[in-house]
Design a protein around this nucleic acid. Structure first.
Lengths: 183, 183
DNA sequence: CCTTGTTGTGCAACTAGTTGCATAAACCGT
DNA sequence: ACGGTTTATGCAACTAGTTGCACAACAAGG
């Protein structure tokens, strides 16, 4: 149950409308907790009903009209509670590793191309993160807030670095596989 | 839609009953694609209905009686198809990173203890993987199959290594945070 | 024999996330 | 003033995964 808390965090960083949230999920929070606009609107409704956030404008809340939300004290409290509460790590699910293991049984035919594609995607993501680091964390910005956010970004950078390296290694391994599409 | 394929892979490695599969998911495949026994039984039923696997024994299939399955040619074909098909990487979802980002807004109070706990869990997992590597991949075992499976295990080892290092770094960062539970 | 624990199988209900589509206002060219 | 595109909000149906529980067979101990 993390989506509501992701939204609370985003709204604390900056009160926003549903669409603005959606965009920010695409660029930032979504890097480790993605969500579609449908999910976000649904959740905004629930959070408002629970009294954790409220709609900002007194303007008529018509369809097709922007509606911004801000976090209420109860919402902040709930977020603090959730942040501090112990949580077990959820097991990862990685399709690519699964496919590799399947390939050990049914052959690697066709897999290599997709590995290359993934390598490319991870390189792009890495470049993206590094641009963000340059832009948002110049030396000197090191308030507690900055340090924590930077820490999160570092995790992203290091994870992408790991994947690019692993994929390069995997492709090298593929290149020297006995029969190429070994049974 | 990966669970059926995870099961096909496991059954190709060794025909098994539902419970045996469950156990092997806990020890091995489940490290990157976890599943509960309920999921597995449900999926075995579907796979059998689709003609991708079949029950082995001619013995009476009573409740509380072991029922083993093996993969049929159609199942192997489907697995090969799926393995080769291009698939976009699903975005990760990481609660811990989310909580850290929330902590940047509502304070780090209480979070440190759970970070330590996670560090411990990752260290355990790493030790587990390294034991498996020692046991299952002694130098010399390097058929195509072994190499591919080893590659997957390496990903697990390197990921856990990454997480332990990142968590150590995060905890060090926490230690020198200005007010300790910075707003 | 009879209860208690373990092994093995499975259904049902629920939760979270995804996909497809609907609706309406605003802006923009013609 | 009209039709097309973009911005913005949202509902409904579906899929995958989780949780809670039920039930049968068998083995072990009193």
């Amino acid at each position: 149950m993390s989506l509501p808390h992701a939204i609370l965090t985003a709204l604390l960083e900056k009160p926003s409308s549903g669409l603005e949230l959606t965009r920010r999920f695409d660029r930032s929070i979504g890097y480790f907790w993605s969500a579609t606009h449908q999910q976000i609107y649904r959740e905004l409704g629930k959070l408002e009903a629970e009294g954790l956030i409220r709609a900002l404008p007194a303007e008529q809340p018509v369809r097709g009209q922007k509606k911004s939300y801000e976090v209420l004290p109860a919402g902040r409290a709930e977020l603090a509670r959730w942040t501090a509460a112990a949580q077990d790590p959820k097991p990862h699910r990685d399709t690519l590793l699964l496919r590799l293991r399947a390939a050990a049984m049914v052959g690697t035919a066709g897999l290599e191309a997709d590995l290359r594609r993934h390598l490319d995607l991870h390189r792009q993501q890495l470049a993206e993160y590094e641009k963000i680091e340059q832009r948002d964390f110049p030396p000197g910005k090191d308030s507690a807030q900055d340090r924590l956010q930077h820490l999160v970004l570092r995790a992203g950078i290091d994870l992408e670095t790991f994947w690019t390296q692993w994929l390069e290694h995997a492709l090298a391994e593929f290149a020297e596989l006995p029969g190429r599409d070994a049974k």
